[in-house]
Amino acid sequence: MRPQELKMLWYKYWLETRGGFVLAMAVLITTAAAGVLYFPAAVRGGMHDLALHHHANAAARGFAIYVREEVFEKLALLWAMLSVMLGTGGLLKEKLLGTAPFLLSLPVGRRQAIAVRCGVSMMQCGCLALGAYGAVPAAALLVGQSYGLGLALRYAGILLAAGVAFVVYGILISTAMEGTAWPAIIGATTVFLLLIVPEAVKGIVRLAPLAVLAGESYSHGGVMPWAGMAISSVAAAAMLGLALWVVKWQDF
């Protein structure tokens, strides 16, 4: 594939997904800001808030811990769900919309198309993680706190590395499932369950995926969640391979 072909294919997928991307970015940044701006209220008398019940002395535990446990965990959950949704909408959706024959009549391989689509998706999800976590230090200034940008971005890196499987999961679903909205809905729902159920039964499951995404181990002594990141990468590679294999034999 020649560079300008690659560029245009990239451009096409960017145009196709930019609406969803901007929306997802807005949701994440709003959530990040809202979470941080809620900090003073949580300190003043967050006792009324059921969500804060299990750590009654939020102020005492410090802003940094509040951010990781309350803000990053919510952002990680949202990010994972939005990433899956952003990843859906491949060739099967184009088949439904009637544009697949046009694309496939170009000298573009199906696997190339999927690979570029996946690349665009990863790039967007990376930006989402950076944007959402990067909003935290900015919002912290508004409530008279400070949070290091470098630290926030390190957590974003963990999220991205440990969550790459979710991005590819979206690609895989939309390769296997026809529809415009259903793949996204089902993808987001399964991710939500996958992350929330172990959280609810914490203690039984030692390695809760949401805690891994939100960098729990890193906050406890700076340990990178290598195992989680490795599992995610392997799963991502496997799912991408499966998607490429499936798409090879499909009819459009």
Binding site: L15, L97, T99
Partner: peptide, 12 residues
């Protein structure tokens, strides 16, 4: 090639 339904990228 011109396809049967002539659909193109509506966002372009």
């Amino acid at each position: 090639f011109v396809s049967e339904d002539k659909r193109l990228y509506h966002y372009m």
